[in-house]
Amino acid sequence: MEQGKMDLEQIPRVKRISKADFLREYVQPQKPVVIEKLIEDWPAYKKWDLDYINEVAGEKEVPLYDDRPISSEYKFNEAHAKMKMSEYIDLLKTRPTNYRIFLYHLMKEVPSLQKDFKFPDVGLRFLKQLPMLFFGGENSKVFMHYDIDYANILHFHFHGKKQCILFPPSESKHLYKVPHALIAREDINFNNPDFDKFPVLKKAKGFITELNHGETLYMPEGYWHHMTYLTAGFSMSLRATPRTLTNFSKAVYNLIFMRHFDNYMRKLRGQKWIDYKNEQAVKRTHKKNDIIL
Rank of each mutant, 00 (worst) to 15 (best):
N77Y: 01
G137E: 10
P199T: 08
R95I: 04
G136S: 08
D262I: 04
T216R: 14
F102I: 03
I148H: 06
I17M: 04
I89S: 08
R24P: 00
L217R: 10
R239A: 03
V14Q: 13
G137M: 12
I17Q: 01
Y264N: 09
I70M: 12
F143T: 08
K31W: 14
Q10R: 12
F158P: 10
Y223V: 09
H105C: 05
K287P: 03
H225E: 09
Y264S: 09
I53V: 03
N98V: 00
R16C: 05
I153N: 11
K202Y: 06
G58N: 02
V178W: 12
D21M: 01
R68S: 13
K267R: 12
L201D: 04
V252I: 11
F190T: 02
L50W: 14
F190K: 05
F190S: 06
E73D: 13
T97N: 04
A81V: 00
L92N: 06
V252P: 06
H159Y: 12
K118R: 09
R284E: 15
D90W: 04
A151T: 12
K115I: 01
K162V: 12
H174T: 01
K177N: 05
K60M: 07
N289D: 12
D49N: 14
N263I: 06
E78M: 08
I291F: 07
H159C: 11
T241E: 15
F198W: 09
L130N: 07
V110S: 00
D66P: 01
L217C: 10
I291G: 08
G136T: 10
M1W: 00
S237T: 15
L182T: 13
R259F: 03
E2G: 01
I256V: 11
K31E: 15
L103M: 11
G4A: 03
H180P: 00
D67A: 06
L130M: 14
H157G: 05
P12Q: 13
D149S: 13
K31F: 14
T241C: 03
T246A: 13
Y264K: 15
D121A: 15
L238K: 02
F195W: 02
Q114N: 10
M83S: 15
G123N: 06
L133T: 15
D187I: 04
E55Y: 09
Y74D: 07
G222N: 12
G233S: 10
T285C: 10
S237C: 07
A81D: 06
P12I: 10
Y218E: 07
S172W: 11
A281E: 08
V27Q: 08
L38Q: 05
D7T: 08
D90I: 00
D51K: 01
Q30K: 14
N192V: 00
G58I: 01
L255N: 12
N247V: 07
L255C: 02
A79I: 00
K267S: 06
L113C: 03
A281R: 06
L130E: 15
